[in-house]
Amino acid sequence: MKAHKSPRPKGVAFAGEALSQGQIDRGTALQTRFRPQAKYSWAAGQAMSRFLDELKAGRLIARKCYRCERTLFPPRMFCEECYRPTDEWVYIKDTGTIETFSISYIDKDAKRITEPIFVGVVSVDGASPLMGMMHYFGETTKEEIRIGMKVKAVWKPAEERTGSVLDIRYWKPIREARR
């Protein structure tokens, strides 16, 4: 083995010096800071523009591929399986089934929150099997919510909708009518 200079202490195979939070807080570990100011504005595209317009109108829409006969949701202008243009806009229902869910006690920055977020994937009735979207669930409890539960979209009032997935507030369980 050839000699070389390394800050690694003799006899230690794995290099690295751990820093503690205390060293950061006390300023004994030197650092340089920077805050990026990047901002973005995304064009929604052909398929999503119509999808968002329909959300604003209180409807869910999908695209049909005549070759594989799937009703694609979220809608797209080309069928990734057949690799050809999709053919037709079709409205689907605002009811569906919970495919999976989580009850989150952390927000997007991993900060702890006391009111948990119910979130998951809902497959939407009228689209091909399993086709759905990620969204929130509401008017339910952690004891009640389960995979396979039937749910219905709760829309914002028309005047509050902006053309966003948030035009649906959340999906709530469809409960059997009491007899």
């Binding site: 929604a44 968002l52 989150s104 952390i106 927000d107 979130v119 990620m134 966003s164 997935v165 948030l166």
Partner: peptide, 9 residues
């Protein structure tokens, strides 16, 4: 468009 408005972690 589909996911980020929900503030996902």
């Amino acid at each position: 468009i589909l996911d980020r408005p929900l503030n996902p972690n």
